[in-house]
Design a protein around this nucleic acid. Sequence first.
DNA 1: CTGAAAGCGCTTACAG
DNA 2: CTGAAAGCGCTTACAG
Lengths: 333, 333
Amino acid sequence: MDRQTVTIYDVAREAGVSMATVSRVVNGNPNVKPSTRKKVEEVIKQLNYQPNAVARGLASKKTTTVGVIIPDVTNLYYSSLARGIDDVASIYKYNIILTNTDENLEKEILVLKDLLTKQVDGVIYMGHHISDELHAQLESVPTPLVLAGSIDQKGILPSVNIDYGAAMKDSLDILFENGNEKIGFVYRSVDEEIDSQVRYGAYKEAHQDHGLPVDDNLVFTSSNSYKDGQNIYDQLISNGATAAIFSDDEAAVGFLNAAHDNGLQVPEKFEIIVSNNSKLVNMTRPQLSTVLQPLYDIGAVSMRLLTKMMNNDEVEDKEIVLPHTIKKWGTTK
Amino acid sequence: MDRQTVTIYDVAREAGVSMATVSRVVNGNPNVKPSTRKKVEEVIKQLNYQPNAVARGLASKKTTTVGVIIPDVTNLYYSSLARGIDDVASIYKYNIILTNTDENLEKEILVLKDLLTKQVDGVIYMGHHISDELHAQLESVPTPLVLAGSIDQKGILPSVNIDYGAAMKDSLDILFENGNEKIGFVYRSVDEEIDSQVRYGAYKEAHQDHGLPVDDNLVFTSSNSYKDGQNIYDQLISNGATAAIFSDDEAAVGFLNAAHDNGLQVPEKFEIIVSNNSKLVNMTRPQLSTVLQPLYDIGAVSMRLLTKMMNNDEVEDKEIVLPHTIKKWGTTK
DNA sequence: CTGAAAGCGCTTACAG
DNA sequence: CTGAAAGCGCTTACAG
């Protein structure tokens, strides 16, 4: 049960040098005579010495660990980001402490405190509702912090996203071009700024630009599950929609299946574009036309940004916008 | 940038007690006079003192952090386990360091070493191929370790699973009862012991029990993606199968959609049962009949087991088998 | 290029 | 119930 049998002290003694010297070779400090470096390295190998990261953390004030706050790992959108984050973290020798919050404010605040207590070198936050209280907490974090796939309406916190508004307009352009005039917009929650502010804002603007009225009977504000997608089917259809944009893939799948059950042909009689390309979009029949969000990259770039900040490197732009495209699969004409 | 302004020393001075006493109240040690406890607590609040977990870790040799090795967070099966793990960890005040390995042996070994270096109090391993080399590494881990949703053929390592063999037999029983005699078995990889040993073994046994021959033309050994599921469609059908059991949900969805594209009616002409109930099973039309695996619970129970082991509690059974059922959705008669 | 010493912020016997 | 002191295993100036 002795977790840490051999310490730096053992290596020093065995190699006939001081702990400082051992520390230097372990940390790749160049100021070590090649022959003594060699000797120390041999002893390290021989004793199978593994530096204790906790002791290093205490002494150096760097833990090479970053905290990652995620609503739910089980959500494909977020787990795709998380994968990008972990892969880049791994490249830069960081580990990730991942914690699920379900976007519950109390939990988020608790987790944040907890992570700081553990002396993480940085934190990545994911979540689509940043209340003023949460924003204040996020701002007061003493370590570098970046938002991944999450926007800061106040434009203060570093973040990595796509241009959700532009993506909305691109999607609408396709649907308008195909002759649709009554286009639904089905989003997750009024609490999610990306939906209720950015996308909905772009939705309205695009309608104005095309000289079309905005019909709020076609806008659904709390559909974030398969079941919700099924449930809104009747209303969307009876209100005359001939197309719809979904923020949530699962809701879109629910709607699509409801359409199938009701014998409504997609895309012939109804077109659909979803906003988050998760794996799901390719698993339906027809496959869902989608905004191609570089989810993995958003996570990866977020972590890369964070490493720069942790390293005190100059960072020109702290509000990174990655490119998107629209992929017309089978639910658009 | 001062991450740790106020220390236990500041609190001690301010409260007019020793560091030891502050430590006692922070750790809930009962041997503190109520009045001095109160005083210390006031100062803690006033100074907003947050104990440094790294220093605690070094001094106490407990980091309240566990390592979680996962093939891919993006995989619904594993992320469901991970969610259960994190929730229970959170209850017991542990954090989770999550690392993706893609089941790559080198990465797994590296990660394991890395986690131990960080002095995790325990580790949870997920992965479906435990080679002898990996097994040796896993066994030599000095902290408690449990396998979640992963089996140890050698029966040495603590683990939490369902009885995959029994689930296979239950699934086959349904298909046999419905009159099928040529039933395919589509699994992920020969490297995955759950598939190639346990499920395939049960598959053969069940056939023998029913006096039916095993036709290896109906067994596919490397289908773990949507595309794979589509690709095997022709062979499975031309070899006369009238039903199939899939280990991988995505592959099953691929097959199902291929069937749809080819006008083959499911379940009328072809029945399907999948082995892992991820969210996906409810998102297809028809919905996939499935073995109901308590994925969240497997993760949760694994973490609970681990807490007991880390706490040196008596653990009666270290090979936990959780119950499963079969849910007949729409792909069985 | 190398070592002695202090210090990181706690916990843990030990003594009283 | 409380404190003094040692120690956890490193890193970091500092001095040479």
